[in-house]
Lab assay of single mutants.
Amino acid sequence: MQRVNMIMAESPGLITICLLGYLLSAECTVFLDHENANKILNRPKRYNSGKLEEFVQGNLERECMEEKCSFEEAREVFENTERTTEFWKQYVDGDQCESNPCLNGGSCKDDINSYECWCPFGFEGKNCELDVTCNIKNGRCEQFCKNSADNKVVCSCTEGYRLAENQKSCEPAVPFPCGRVSVSQTSKLTRAETVFPDVDYVNSTEAETILDNITQSTQSFNDFTRVVGGEDAKPGQFPWQVVLNGKVDAFCGGSIVNEKWIVTAAHCVETGVKITVVAGEHNIEETEHTEQKRNVIRIIPHHNYNAAINKYNHDIALLELDEPLVLNSYVTPICIADKEYTNIFLKFGSGYVSGWGRVFHKGRSALVLQYLRVPLVDRATCLRSTKFTIYNNMFCAGFHEGGRDSCQGDSGGPHVTEVEGTSFLTGIISWGEECAMKGKYGIYTKVSRYVNWIKEKTKLT
């Protein structure tokens, strides 16, 4: 034993070699072989497995989906700052455009905790909710729209109204504003409101030439003092309507412009014939205590009207009353817009006519005020429907199939267009061939041609 100890002390290297040989010859039971080890760690190889990531292109799944990435790591994937920024906006807080917040056709661009709407022409605001041009839906104005110097929408209202708090709607500024039905039992019968379409306001006024200088022999019209197929109006439903009495009662109609003036057809009036105007009328054979009678003290036909040349060209006249009318729910003026808007309103496509005229061709006159909704007829169809001249200051309205029309005794009465609950004068009943005849239409004086003249002559002093 002493000898062994001496050998170990003198030859430590020998001992180490012996131990190493023993270990190498022993069977290893701690580690699995290569094949079995792979069965336990069965993990798919990654895209760049075996390579240094710093030297390969980034992978979106590896960089940002398996674990949260930084902007720089995302930049490695896209290799483009702009594309990385677009991805980053949604990656950080989701897609803010998912709810489609942009209105009126706006395009949404996502941002971090926010979004941006790219608005089409005519709109602005956070969600493109603000109209900035009158060309689109009248700028959301209830009545009139004008573009300011910086191309912003400025709404306005006709006389007797003021802008509401929203700067879009119009509200009454006087007790009985024009064009409004205020009798409670008839307010439910107000005709369907007309909503502004998209309009090209630059070209809204037709490029028409008034044929002022045409000389033409007097034409022989049949029954051209021209509501057939209409309905009984309720008291106060058309408070701007008046009836004219002269040699015979209810020979023509008219509309209240203001307390002192009536507008009617020029062919209705004769110099030297006494005319009485009755406002607030409903049943011409009954006294309903809503009527107001006034005498006409002055007749002003349009300066281009000449019955000797043509009885229905420039067929418009103004009547001055001896005493002002007292405005109330049964006696209310009709609204008159400017030339541009009167023309736009007419193009809405349908209007209402009213009167006490004959209820059928050569038949009896109506006792109760009649009204009828009539569609506008395109000019080409209008011209083809008659052998008589249709001037540019006239328009056609009615039904091709016949059966409904204005008729004798309705002449001078109103053709009105309702705009968001307020009625505007767009025409004056003038003439036609018979009444409600198939293929024939009622012919009306186009008020847009005469609004400046009306307003100039009827100013209240």
Rank of each mutant, 00 (worst) to 15 (best):
R294T: 01
A397I: 03
L60N: 02
A279N: 00
K362I: 04
C382P: 02
I15P: 07
N283C: 07
H303P: 10
N80Y: 03
P175W: 04
G236R: 06
E54I: 00
N127A: 06
C134F: 03
L103T: 12
F224I: 14
C117K: 02
V257Y: 03
S448E: 07
E159T: 10
Q370F: 02
K152C: 06
P120L: 12
W356Q: 04
N203Y: 08
L376N: 04
S217V: 12
N104E: 04
N135I: 10
E259S: 08
E165Q: 12
R384S: 10
E171T: 09
T287I: 13
C382I: 03
I299N: 05
K446T: 04
L189E: 15
K146E: 14
E53I: 00
A37G: 12
L41F: 05
V92N: 10
F196K: 15
L20E: 02
G50H: 07
N138L: 07
I275Y: 07
A207S: 15
Q237A: 07
S182Q: 07
V277S: 01
E76Q: 01
F144I: 04
L14M: 12
F221L: 13
K126V: 09
V447M: 07
F238D: 01
V248D: 08
P175Q: 06
D410Q: 15
G106T: 03
F424L: 01
Y441N: 03
D33W: 11
E67W: 00
L321V: 06
V277M: 04
K446A: 09
D405V: 06
P301M: 11
V257R: 00
T194K: 08
G94I: 12
E10Y: 05
K51P: 00
V30C: 06
V153F: 08
C28Y: 02
N283V: 10
G58P: 14
N245M: 07
Y352N: 06
E281V: 15
I15N: 04
E208V: 09
D322W: 02
E27A: 13
P175S: 10
S148A: 09
C128S: 03
C382V: 03
K247Q: 14
Q96W: 12
R364I: 08
S182R: 10
R46D: 01
S423W: 15
A380F: 10
I334P: 01
G409S: 11
W453Q: 01
E281R: 11
H415A: 02
W261V: 02
T332Y: 05
E86R: 09
V377C: 03
R364P: 07
L372W: 15
E10W: 13
G179S: 00
K387V: 05
P12I: 11
K339W: 07
M394A: 07
A192D: 13
V257W: 01
S114I: 07
N245V: 10
E73L: 00
F144A: 00
C435S: 04
S365T: 14
A250D: 06
G363S: 12
Q167M: 15
D322V: 03
G272N: 12
G236Q: 05
A265E: 00
E418P: 11
Y47A: 14
K168P: 02
H314T: 02
N310Y: 05
G409C: 11
D150G: 11
T287P: 09
V326W: 07
D110S: 13
V368L: 09
E193L: 11
P301L: 12
N113I: 07
L325A: 00
Y450H: 03
F251W: 08
Y371A: 14
T85F: 07
I297R: 09
C108D: 02
N104Q: 05
R294Q: 02
N113Y: 07
I15K: 11
F399A: 08
V331W: 00
P375Y: 11
T381H: 14
S182V: 09
F399Q: 13
Y450T: 01
E285R: 11
Q216G: 07
Y115H: 06
K188C: 06
G402Q: 15
T389Q: 15
H361L: 11
R75E: 05
R384C: 04
V419E: 02
V243Q: 07
N138R: 09
L425G: 00
L189F: 14
Y441C: 03
F221T: 10
F87E: 02
C102R: 02
G229A: 13
Q185R: 10
E320A: 03
F144N: 00
W431R: 10
K293E: 10
L23V: 14
P197I: 07
I334N: 00
I297W: 04
I7K: 12
D33E: 09
S354H: 05
A192M: 12
T29I: 14
I454V: 06
L211R: 06
I15G: 07
T386V: 08
T84P: 03
C170R: 01
Q408K: 11
L327N: 01
G402D: 10
H314A: 06
I390D: 10
E288M: 07
S411H: 14
E53R: 00
N42S: 14
V447S: 03
C157Y: 01
H289W: 11
V181G: 11
K68S: 06
V326A: 09
A9G: 13
A26F: 10
I262G: 02
V202L: 13
N306Y: 05
